[in-house]
């Protein structure tokens, strides 16, 4: 199946520190010293893991689904999604801010998060801004609202990056 993966400079995985080759099948044991498997995002997982470079990855074998990722025994980097860059990240952040302002800008207690998000964006911390928006949403209506905000973020990214169409 097709999934997505954020990698740092030089296609290095952010937590395991594995340098991914492009186009070659990689077994979990090689990519992850603890053999937990190859971690990847479904479309709905993408907003949780925002990172430097976004790649499409093909997974093979039995896939285990976690709350915010999927794990497979084998994977192959297919291509880098070059539309994912700093400008798009900032545009994403601006959308998060606008939505939060519309929904909660006039709500006591929650309106403070609008200013927080603005500050996070001003300092370039877009993932933190996206978390703050989901946090405000959860405070407004419980855990389901947190997930709903994250799904809205995922939908925006899917639309702009053409995720989930492969």
């Amino acid at each position: 199946m097709t999934a997505y993966k954020f990698l740092g400079d030089g296609s290095v995985s952010p937590f395991a520190g594995f340098r991914w080759p492009v186009g070659e099948w990689v077994e979990a044991a090689a990519a992850d010293p603890c053999r937990r498997g190859i971690h990847a995002c479904r479309v709905q997982d993408v907003p949780f893991w925002l990172g430097h470079g976004l790649w499409e990855i093909e997974l093979d074998g039995e896939i285990v689904v976690y709350q915010r990722k999927i794990v497979a025994p084998r994977g192959r980097l297919v291509r880098r999604l070059t539309d994912w860059n700093r400008e798009l990240l900032e545009e994403f952040g601006a959308g998060v801010l606008a939505r939060t302002r519309t929904r909660f800008g006039a709500v006591a207690v929650l309106s403070g998060y609008v200013g927080d998000i603005q500050n996070h964006l001003a300092s370039g911390r877009v993932p933190l801004a996206a978390f703050a928006a989901a946090r405000a949403a959860e405070l407004s209506g419980g855990p389901a609202e947190y997930e709903r905000e994250r799904l809205r973020q995922a939908a925006w990214l899917a639309d702009r990056l053409g995720l989930g169409t492969a």
């Binding site: 952010p14 937990r36 990172g51 933190l128």
Partner: peptide
Amino acid sequence: ADDRERVEEHLVFCD
């Protein structure tokens, strides 16, 4: 696995 995921999810946004 769940706690590990939560820690890593947190590290993504928390400088």
